[in-house]
Write a protein that binds this DNA or RNA. Structure first.
Lengths: 339, 339
DNA sequence: CGCTTGTATGCAAGCGCTCTCAAATTTGCT
DNA sequence: AGCAAATTTGAGAGCGCTTGCATACAAGCG
């Protein structure tokens, strides 16, 4: 395995020599900042092509102090929801010549801090934080050094651009839909209480209930942690406690999947016996059995908007942090309750 | 938004000055290569701590010619299967001080080539290619410059480490299980014909049939492309053509999900009317309705093994490319056919 | 005590590129 | 043709760190 690899890459100096010009001139045609005479430009381009010269971003970063890299703090590289956002970021950053550098915080404040440090050490030109548990303070601190975009929270601070969906409305949307379908006993499976968005969804649920003149019954609210298992457990509890319900609104799709399985295990059919609504509208929800009705969070677009905002900050423009509203995707996991 | 950020980061020179030593000495305690007197070391460490100095990987990369970064060519940053592998890579690389740099090839030869070029330009120290459509030749070329690890194919070449699961056995495993459960009419939904692994699975299917003395019926093989929609379409065709079958083996889980939905639409129940087996055992399969029986590809472990192999190559060791065997995870989407 | 080993330190030359500044060249005008 | 102005070009000083080489100093020996 001790293979001798092609060694020294072609450098700008070699190109300059080959084209009979100075390095400065080569650099100029590369960056395109200053005009260069036609003849020289052609000669240089020819030399570049012949030598297959590729400028070193490393050297360039060092010289310019910019790395053309944007650090992305995601929570897990294999997260179905953030995966979509990452894709949106990637699709938006690449054409602009930037490369995303993904690191995972694993919903752990300390890890997330280390991520930011590592990114700063690598001289990224900006940081996009996808939700996470970092304190606002930590983000403000981060923004002192680098343009910072953060999703999943509302925060106004200098040099920072925050964007968030309206989870409250999303919660209302789902609940109202169930209400309008004739459901009165709607269970709610809550998400991770540490995440503000989670409680926003719950507030939406309660607000919709209230608006419909239905008393809020705390017995119908089950704790959860955004993972499948907790959705399943919630159903177990509900059934075991003999709490009547005709619908379930889960604070995210993963818990809805778990709930679906829990219902199935109990011999309850979706949507015949119980209507089920999720939140996120993950790609898989379309092919769930039955296909899941869910509050759609356009994650891909979220990523795009975040990336564009970053690009704007980088170019000195005031970023636009507007996100599309949450919508409800109705599928087959819900049904109208007859009179 | 024109915030004036903290500007010049702390440099080694400042540390050297603060500690009253030369930069070389600072560098030496940083890299730990050469012995440094106790007193100076303490002084330097103190200065580093006080100034909160973090060495610039960019400058270091330029000076050493190594970036402590490993390029990962994945196919889609939001792929459920490769996501797990990426996580395995991340978990293995980080403790070793390396950072993975993920780029997406989107199953497109040209894009994948660009990915490799971009990674090389960024001076990554090695490349891990997760399957993809690159020609063996392109990989061999890549390995001329950088340590290369590739998954999902078998390839022996200098400086390259390839690892692959035994998809043929996986195909046999699933089929044999169905056979042993009493099924005789087993439909197969094929994957993307361009991927060798896909046809390997099919070969396994046919081999198992043959071994059981059952004639292979080409009518039972439906084309597919590894996506949900094609699984659904396959069921449609099967049913429309009145081809009898009691089980379906889909070449991956996503198509199995699609097939499950297709069956549901046709009023066929899983597993009562039709048994269903997938391939991959994606995280979601555990919570599918019903939970899906599937050939488990340990993707996370795959990532780990790939990362370890890379680390070994980097340290001049002969890499180990052994992957665990494929196993069958039996869940509720299959049932025994009564004699 | 002078000599050879050995160890700890500093100097300075890169790594490959960018960018300022001044020199060299061209252009425009009278 | 002659001069100022505009344009193109090159030299060279960084960017922050590593490292080979030389120097300084301490220890070990006869």
């Amino acid at each position: 395995m001790s293979l001798s690899r092609e060694s020294a890459p072609v450098t700008m100096e070699m190109v300059a020599k080959a084209a009979g010009v100075s390095m400065s001139t080569v650099s100029r045609v590369l960056t395109g900042t200053v005009a260069v005479s036609e003849t020289k430009r052609v000669a240089i381009e020819k030399a570049i092509a012949e030598l297959r010269f590729v400028p070193s971003p490393v050297a360039r970063s060092l010289a310019k102090g910019r790395s053309m890299t944007i650090g992305i703090v995601t929570q897990a590289i294999d997260s179905p929801f953030y995966g979509l956002a990452m894709r949106g970021i990637e699709d938006e950053l690449n054409p602009a010549g930037y490369m995303p550098l993904f690191v995972s915080g694993h919903w752990n404040v300390k890890t997330e801090c280390q991520c930011i440090d590592a990114l700063r050490a690598r001289r990224v030109d900006g940081v996009i934080v996808l939700t996470g548990r970092l304190t606002d303070q930590a983000l403000i601190e981060c923004a002192r050094f680098l343009p910072t975009v953060v999703t999943g929270r509302n925060l106004t601070a200098p040099g920072i651009c925050a964007m968030n969906f309206d989870h409250f409305s999303g919660g209302m949307l789902a609940t109202r839909f169930l209400l309008e379908s004739g459901h009165r006993r709607i269970a709610f499976i809550a998400g991770d209480p540490d995440q503000p968005n989670s409680s926003e969804r719950q507030r939406g649920y309660q607000a919709a209930l209230e608006a419909a003149g239905i008393a809020f019954d705390p017995d119908l609210v089950m704790p959860g942690d955004f993972h499948e298992a907790s959705g399943m457990l919630a159903v177990d509890r509900l059934v075991t406690a003999h709490i009547p319900f005709t619908a379930i609104f889960a604070a995210n799709d993963q818990m809805a999947y778990g709930a679906a399985l829990g219902l199935r295990r109990r011999g309850l059919r979706v949507p015949d016996d119980v209507s089920l609504v999720g939140f996120d509208d993950l790609p898989g929800s379309q092919y769930a059995a039955p296909p899941l009705t869910s509050v759609r969070q356009p994650a891909y677009e979220l990523g795009q908007v975040a990336a564009v905002a970053m690009l704007q900050m980088l170019s000195g423009t005031i970023p636009t942090c507007d996100l599309p509203p949450l919508t409800l995707t109705t599928r087959e996991s819900t049904r109208r309750l007859l009179g």
